[in-house]
């Protein structure tokens, strides 16, 4: 994939974190979040430890914390569930800020909020330090089925084209006085989605013919030569070791 295919969450830098192979970062992020989720919710201090660990990685990767906090808002949907838990949860109830709230419900809400937030921050760190082609290569090296990586590659290559097409269709509707406000006015937008599907499908047929005429054999060629060394794995998994130690501490003190 050529240049210019960066995704919106990527922060171009030259740092040790950016330089790590993508498969190491994917595995490290996954194991790190597993440690967070496995930590008992009563071990309050341990979650601060995870945040410090992430902050250390951000300073190495030179990601500004403000950038992260703005994008961490994505997890808001489940905050609704977390807010309802203390109100609707079972007894015993305690007084907190003048409200009578359920103690297990409050703990449950804390559990969802803190683990969800640490999860989102970890995913953001992965996304900010890993460009698209690297990630696809990483998935390939993690032995993801070739068809999955091929479909994902083509999808990411054409998604900008399709999104731009959708934007032009929307602009054309607005230029003709389209201003829907209610669900029963979705007709024109939905018909637009219908034509977007037909255009995408027909583009797929053309792309297939174009690929065949350029010698497509059914497999994507491996473009990068770089091999992942034991040293890469050790450096990438070092934070995971710290996270595992934190999780164990959590089990001991809780």
């Amino acid at each position: 994939m050529g240049a210019g295919h960066a995704h919106p969450l990527y922060l171009p830098r030259t740092s040790a974190v950016h330089g790590l192979p993508a498969e190491v970062k994917v595995v490290a992020a996954f194991l790190g979040v597993v440690c967070v989720v496995a930590t008992p919710r009563e071990a309050f201090a341990v979650f601060g430890g995870y945040l410090l660990l992430l902050a250390l990685i951000w300073s190495i990767a030179r990601i500004p914390p403000g950038w992260l906090s703005r994008r961490a808002l994505i997890e808001t949907p489940f905050v609704v569930l977390a807010v309802l838990l203390p109100i609707t949860g079972p007894d015993p109830r305690i007084d907190w800020l003048g409200l009578s709230v359920s103690e297990p419900g409050l703990l449950g809400a804390w559990n969802i909020l803190v683990k969800g937030t640490l999860g989102v921050l970890t995913s953001l760190t992965l996304a900010a330090t890993t460009p698209l082609p690297e990630l696809l290569l990483g998935l390939q090296r993690l032995r993801a089925p070739a068809l999955v990586t091929t479909i994902a590659t083509l999808m990411l290559r054409y998604v900008d084209v399709i999104v731009a097409e959708a934007r032009r269709m929307r602009l054309a509707r607005i230029a003709r006085g389209h201003d829907p406000r209610f669900l029963w006015q979705v007709g024109a937008t939905a018909r637009g989605v219908g034509s977007l599907f037909i255009r995408s499908y027909e583009r797929g047929e053309r792309v297939h013919l174009a690929m065949l005429s350029r010698g497509w054999t059914g497999e994507l060629p491996q473009l990068a030569e770089r091999v992942t060394t034991r040293r890469d794995w050790l450096r990438g998994l070092a934070p995971v070791a710290v996270a595992a130690a934190l999780a164990c501490t959590g089990w001991v003190i809780a």
Binding site: Y158, V159, A166, G192, L196, Y201, G204, E205, V207
Partner: peptide
């Protein structure tokens, strides 16, 4: 045609979720 067709259908799903 699996790879290109599924790739474009996937891109369509992605784009639709942004509308």
């Amino acid at each position: 045609r699996t790879a290109p067709m599924a790739g474009l259908v996937t891109a369509f799903v992605f784009a639709v979720q942004m509308i």
